[in-house]
Design a protein around this nucleic acid. Sequence first.
DNA 1: AATGAATGAGACTTCATTCAT
DNA 2: CATGAATGAAGTCTCATTCAT
Lengths: 213, 213, 213, 213
Amino acid sequence: MHKPELELYYQAGVLDHFTEKQLKILTTAIQIFSEKGYENTSTKEIAEVAGVAEGNIFAKFKNKRGLLNAIIEPVLNRVFPSTIDAFIQEQLDKEYLSTAEFVDSLLFNRMDMVKENSAVFKIFFTEIFYDHDVRQELIDLFPNVYWQKLNNLIDELKQKHILNGLPNNDIIRTLWSIMGGLVVGYLFFNQPLDQRTINSGMTALVEAIEPKP
Amino acid sequence: MHKPELELYYQAGVLDHFTEKQLKILTTAIQIFSEKGYENTSTKEIAEVAGVAEGNIFAKFKNKRGLLNAIIEPVLNRVFPSTIDAFIQEQLDKEYLSTAEFVDSLLFNRMDMVKENSAVFKIFFTEIFYDHDVRQELIDLFPNVYWQKLNNLIDELKQKHILNGLPNNDIIRTLWSIMGGLVVGYLFFNQPLDQRTINSGMTALVEAIEPKP
Amino acid sequence: MHKPELELYYQAGVLDHFTEKQLKILTTAIQIFSEKGYENTSTKEIAEVAGVAEGNIFAKFKNKRGLLNAIIEPVLNRVFPSTIDAFIQEQLDKEYLSTAEFVDSLLFNRMDMVKENSAVFKIFFTEIFYDHDVRQELIDLFPNVYWQKLNNLIDELKQKHILNGLPNNDIIRTLWSIMGGLVVGYLFFNQPLDQRTINSGMTALVEAIEPKP
Amino acid sequence: MHKPELELYYQAGVLDHFTEKQLKILTTAIQIFSEKGYENTSTKEIAEVAGVAEGNIFAKFKNKRGLLNAIIEPVLNRVFPSTIDAFIQEQLDKEYLSTAEFVDSLLFNRMDMVKENSAVFKIFFTEIFYDHDVRQELIDLFPNVYWQKLNNLIDELKQKHILNGLPNNDIIRTLWSIMGGLVVGYLFFNQPLDQRTINSGMTALVEAIEPKP
DNA sequence: AATGAATGAGACTTCATTCAT
DNA sequence: CATGAATGAAGTCTCATTCAT
């Protein structure tokens, strides 16, 4: 009964009290926004493709921007934090860890989410570049929610000789650069995101952040 | 007499026969597009800020899209190819080369261009994600213009033991991931792009693509 | 409840699902187009005179041209064919016919339609001269829809000695020349189109196409 | 040295002091106006096709309307009157005349002018239907310039039993209906205007206006 | 006389949003 | 909750016209 392309949102618990038509609007908007961009999509088109009256969009989402927010906010405020939390928890639970294991845990398990929600992530990436406000939200979110936790984790992993001595900032940038490269290649440039490719990214990452003897 | 923020375009030789007002439109558009995005900028605003009549935009650039193209096309069709060519020529001219030297030549000398033309590159990145056509142009450009040359260079560098044995595809993705990470961090996330940061990216890159003993 | 100036369109069955405002737009456009010409009429003026928001025009008629088409197409594709059909049927139903009766049936009964829809016919004439596409539609329509039927009728009437031996082409041209002269005089040159004038046209026509003893 | 498509205007004596560029503008405007209509033609296009700067149009013709007037006015105020005068003079010079001779003199000698200046006449017809002012000029012209002379001629011809007893109005309408039918067919509907066709029109006309024994 | 860059009013059109039903 | 007609502000773009060179 669940729409599979909304799984992300079901798990974030934001689809309660949505009617069937409202869910249809959401999935349609995700589809069209990801194909043509938010600014190039009219509410009329969304309504037509979704097979509902245009007024429904505004009844539920207040305005067009509210519809975009309904797509982006849960990713920003729920999916990201809980993913980071889960990842950090994973590291803390494991006692002995190699750099490869660390990277594997970081990369490998997350890419499925990207592939299963590629339309959502396409919108997300696009809007982060396009929209000052969305970008600012991400920038604001980082220090408060992720930064301290990540910092602590990295310090700990440095002590365990799992990460090299580069400044934490540089390590983090290297992490998201390689991850971002894989994801952007997949979402926007028709590159594969299969296990071999992911492994290749992993290898590069391990070399870049692994302590040298 | 040259407007410094258009240096890129002067060198590409695309500003011949531009009047002072037309140059003002171009610089203004670059500024506002980079700040608010193409879709969120009206031609009226450009004209007002540039201090010209709106009609001038259409007299010279045909339509709003033509103005965006005047900004993007030279980067795509002139700056990029000539940069790649210059880079490749650099490698061929040097006999003995370490991985670090290779990466240095790749990264270090290019970042100035990004910093000096940050508004243009911001537009460029944004539109690559936002606009299917621009992205497709880039995708089309790659195989024809860059791919073969890069491939040959990488093969040669592998023989010289300057690059490791990863598939060329993976090496290239690693290169632009790390470079893209630096640039995106600088352009969109207020990260520094000073020599220390570039060096740090260089180090990560060297580790990732250097042959292991 | 019917607007009398739209009777033509009601009978053509093209006004279903029109709201009151949309009908007002149509009648207003007919009025102003006929007075000032399509190109000299702005959608803003139509909306103002009709007392509706300008957007309504585009919501219903897609664009300004769509509004003109909504006026012209039914005349071209419905009123004309059905009028011709009715006329031909009339001839076939009558056994013995004089040239005068034939001309009477042709002319007399049709002029009321012109007078009752003079604004529409003014637009129609004007656009046939002004607009290549409209004219082409009329040219295309003729061979397929009218020509064969008219030809057959004329051949039959020649056998019955109601028409003289001029080539069918010439007879048809004479018919529409005299009819067109009456109509154009009425619509554009303030000439009367009363029974005396019509009779006079009839007389000329009868003389021109009647077999001589 | 004369441009043949401007012969009409040379004879009307209105091309004195025209430079080569101004003549080119005039011929170009005649061509494009006749193809696309006055309203659908921009001064920019005329200038481009004529190979001159746009400003020249306004330097000579004051404004766009002035260019149209330069095409239409001579026809209205010189070609028409002198044609009518010449025609009337022809009749007065001939003593014994049949209806056929009269019609022949009326029709046959005038159609060459239409064929040799088809673009000008196309504009003329189109604007008479499209433009209230042009039409009004024609309406105003008729009583003052043509009407009395034509009336007198017709009265005279009635006495000579060359025309039947229809009201002069009806005779005139029949004349221009048949003539107009030939011309409109030729200019707008790809109909021939060869001698056979003209003869056929003549025959119809003679029958319609000839006194019956 | 000739040029064409510059102007800006006004055209058509889109579109998010409201609201009566 | 659902509909879609109606709105009107705001957008892009055209074009006749001016004017300094």
